[in-house]
Amino acid sequence: MLLVAFVVLAVLLAFVVGRRYQPVEEAITTAQPAGDADLSLDNIDYTETRNGRAVWRLRAVGGSHDLQAGVTRLRQVDLVFYGREGRGDLRLTADRGVWDSRSGRLEAFGHVRASDDRGYVLTSERMFYDQNRRLVWTDGPVRLTSTAMEVRGRGLRLFVDQRRLRLLSDVWSRWQLGPLAEERG
């Protein structure tokens, strides 16, 4: 179910953001001194590999990193988590992303879209992730779709470790049921 897929996505997101990741593979970026940011980055393409296998890949048209504030701002974010043990890849895109390493908080906004290869899609205009509380949330509208269902609501709280999700208001859902397994054949 889409809600389930979204939980998987969040777990991966938490896994990525929560780690002290070491750049195993040099990011193909062109860095120049930036205006007020310490570092301005273009054509970011960063892949984390482990034991020779790609774990996730972050691409962004550009970004900047503020060393003092410990904040990284990214434009046109495209984040792919490569599936393991038979699980397909998951992809998150957004117009912008801000990662605050001090507060452990990630914000993605502007056409936030998360999808996997089974056709599950989550869309929202703004999504937050709090690494300390292991919580994904938004107060805005959320839409979850797959080939079999669509759920809309306003306000999302996803408790990553408990694998529980809440929609806070205005819930509408439509489920294409189809015959139960025993009935087929």
Binding site: M1, V7, R163, R164, W172, R174, W175
Partner: peptide
Amino acid sequence: NRDAPLEITSDRLEADDVSKTVVFI
């Protein structure tokens, strides 16, 4: 038609992947 689309609306929703339930409240 038990296979017809099912539409559910509510104030709130809670999904729990462990107990495999979606609760509309």
